[in-house]
Design a binder for these strands. Sequence first.
DNA 1: CGCCGTCTGGATAGAACGTTCTACAGTAAG
DNA 2: CTTACTGTAGAACGTTCTATCCAGACGGCG
Lengths: 194, 194
Amino acid sequence: MVTQPDTRTKIRDAAAVLFRRHGYPATGLKRIAAEAGATFGSIYHFFPGGKQQLAEDIIRGSGPEYMRTVLALLDSTPDPLQSLDIAFRAAADNLAATGYADACPIATMALEVASSNEVLRLATAQVFAEWVDEATTWFGRWVPDREAARTLAHALIMLLEGAFLLSRAARDREPMEAAGRSIRELTRAALGPA
Amino acid sequence: MVTQPDTRTKIRDAAAVLFRRHGYPATGLKRIAAEAGATFGSIYHFFPGGKQQLAEDIIRGSGPEYMRTVLALLDSTPDPLQSLDIAFRAAADNLAATGYADACPIATMALEVASSNEVLRLATAQVFAEWVDEATTWFGRWVPDREAARTLAHALIMLLEGAFLLSRAARDREPMEAAGRSIRELTRAALGPA
DNA sequence: CGCCGTCTGGATAGAACGTTCTACAGTAAG
DNA sequence: CTTACTGTAGAACGTTCTATCCAGACGGCG
């Protein structure tokens, strides 16, 4: 039905890219409008709350969307170790393919607003909490102990985020590959004594 | 010999706190001057390169300084597993004590500049590389295989950084504690087959 | 046709940004 | 006393920021 993206979507998509790559304060609304092919007035028409509402919208939207992508990769094979390998390899490939620009959609913003903007901080916290819950459920399929599964879920996300940080800074996929080895090692250890 | 901090040091220290908590673009030179008890002119007197030079100075200075703190904790006992426990517990304590504000001194900036400022990106990359090397040496004391030690070093730093991200967003020490359990589990696995 | 809500285009405001510039205080050397 | 140097103080510049405001274009409908 929708032949071409409407203005609201164009603004959202352009802002999401800029926020992810450069962060919240460094991204100007003027630049968002330019990249979206929209005008200033349109931003405030669709997002009366201004920059903050736009960012919150993107955090709460891109977060779950990204997790869905990751979960799809994690379900690509029945073997959890092999799925983890595929997922982290895909993350490294995507990172390298985008010139080490596109990583976690909300990590940069999360660090930026953690001590200065309570509304956005809460949004990022809720997205991360959702990720941990979903990853815990995923690990729970093979790891009966819920505490152990939750620790693995935390490790998965922290290794992924840490690898994004190091890989983006170094423009090198080595950290992401090390992260993949580590999460597989942890999972293997949790599966072993079964 | 130095009775009170000179202006250069006051500016550096104030800027380091602000950059760490709010990031690079969100921190204004005016605010830095105010917090440091200095004036505009003094900033440009000591840092003719402006904001970027100040940030690079802080990245290259605070990075190694922070690693020294971590390494001191890691050498607090002869047992690596116990030292890791102490270090991650200290990180969680410090985080909670500062209202989840003071975490990694350069992580926020590293993500912000990774795709927009090559000078600062390189500075962060070199600091991280140094961290990995030093952590590799530390693990190397018990793990003879250098590749394995380097993977552990990456895991240590990535888990720490990931835990900073999640803990700051959630204002909760659980992620940091999970990171501590995970790095000890990985280290245990590497020590086991010895 | 005229009407009306939706959306666009852009001017404008007022504040804050990084940076540059000049003036000046204090001190040590000649 | 003069000269030179280091550091302080802050005004001023041009740019960019978020946000507000309004005139007008568009499309469905009576």
